[in-house]
């Protein structure tokens, strides 16, 4: 060992630095992880609530999601059953769609009656001042969205539709409309399936 004394020193110093760093990082992670998790859940809950205000409890439906994906629904990430006083109050769909510069993730609520309850953009990194305006209430609560039902197929005015796109951000607006359409179609098939069984089945 004497021959390579200096080399051993190099290895020791770097190893010690790495081990100490690793230890500190483990500690920081243990301290922050629960807080980050809690905050993510809180944000998720808030997004679901805004998409479907009439429900109070949301339950993830993994089997339904798989079934919808099998039947060719695109962009669906999660499906939630909205409940109010143990009674079904509708669905919330978490949908991803490619915008102009980023993936736009949104929560879209559909009431048990088949109406579009709300559209809420959870995350996006579109161009500030242009595509980022898809988060604006003026866009998301416009009449075309408020009047939509699970049977609607929406489109922006440029594509001869009824949704007023954001000025110079047609691509971002189209992405949101695509997401809404995917949710409406999924909601339509789910609600139709329930009504066939008799409507009383909540699960």
């Amino acid at each position: 060992m004497g021959k390579y004394k200096y080399e051993w020193r190099l290895i020791m110093v770097l190893t010690i630095i790495c081990v100490v760093s690793g230890g500190i990082l483990g500690l920081v992670n243990a301290l922050t992880e629960p807080v980050i998790k809690a905050q993510e859940e809180l944000a998720q809950q808030k997004a679901l609530q805004e998409a479907l205000p009439s429900a109070t409890v949301f339950r993830a439906e993994k089997a339904t999601l798989e079934a919808l994906k099998q039947s060719g629904s695109t962009g669906l990430v999660e499906v939630y059953r909205g409940l109010r006083d143990e009674q079904p109050a509708g669905f919330v769909f978490i949908v991803d769609q490619q915008g102009y510069a980023s993936l736009i993730r949104m929560a879209i609520g559909i009431t048990q009656a088949g109406n579009l309850a709300g559209v809420n953009v959870i995350s996006q990194s579109e161009t500030p001042g242009l595509g980022a305006k898809v988060t604006n209430a003026e866009f998301l609560t416009q009449q075309a969205f408020q009047e939509a039902t699970s049977e609607s197929q929406l489109a922006v005015t440029k594509d001869k539709g009824e949704v007023d796109a954001i000025t110079s951000a047609t691509i971002s607006s189209r992405a949101v409309v695509r997401g809404v359409n995917a949710a409406l179609a999924a909601g339509h098939s789910l609600l139709a399936a329930e009504n066939e069984i008799g409507g009383a089945v909540s699960d």
Binding site: L14, S21, V28, V35, I36, Q39
Partner: peptide, 24 residues
């Protein structure tokens, strides 16, 4: 250089995690 990068990466991760927890 590797030693500096490890130290810098450690501090960056601490700041990153702390920010994610405190100001999501």
């Amino acid at each position: 250089i590797p030693a500096y990068v490890v130290v810098i990466a450690t501090f960056t991760t601490i700041v990153d995690k702390t920010m994610a927890a405190a100001t999501p």
